[in-house]
Amino acid sequence: MTAVAHSTTMGLDNRKLGMWVFLASEFLFFGAFMSAYLLYIDTTNRGPGIEIFDIPFTSVSSFVLLMSSLTMVLAHNSHLRGDMRRMRLWVLATAGQGMVFLGGQVYEFTVFFREGLDLTQSPFASSFYFLAGFHGAHVAIGVLLLLGLYSLSLTGKIKPGQDVKTEIIGLYWHFVDIIWVILFTVVYLIPELRV
């Protein structure tokens, strides 16, 4: 430890502040994909359109992702209390739900692809795959982070006092979740009402 410890100017952890700053910019990222999707929602080029969505299926995987936020926050809570065993359990549960969501997305994409919704089919297809796909990529990164967190805590590299690490991964995870809260409504449910 250094002899000249002075607390940060705002009394906040740098990494947590950094994560929030980064998340602020992510809204602009997803927003752009979403505007493309909304612009092209009817531009199907004689290919499949929004009627292709399987709402019950997507609802289930959305629900799984939503609940993964609960396990994530429980993992952080356990870490905060120093209960590393529980923390690992919840982290694994979260990663598992993330993988279930991803598996659902892969399945969904495969089905759509078989039904003719090719990336190259139409602007609608391109923008749908990009919007959902980049969200999926975020989930995948989140799963990797969680697995890393799990293995590092297993080897003792992450210790009870270091809950900031769990916290910032949690922030990222919840962010990916709330993006899906928006996407599920805007991409799937609202258009479905118009059919």
Binding site: T43, N45, L119, T120, Q121, P123, F130
Partner: peptide
């Protein structure tokens, strides 16, 4: 992706803008 993977974001032929 338009240039390399034939996505259709900006291709007027399929309605892209």
């Amino acid at each position: 992706f338009d240039a390399v993977f034939d996505a259709q974001f900006f291709q007027p032929a399929s309605g892209g803008d």
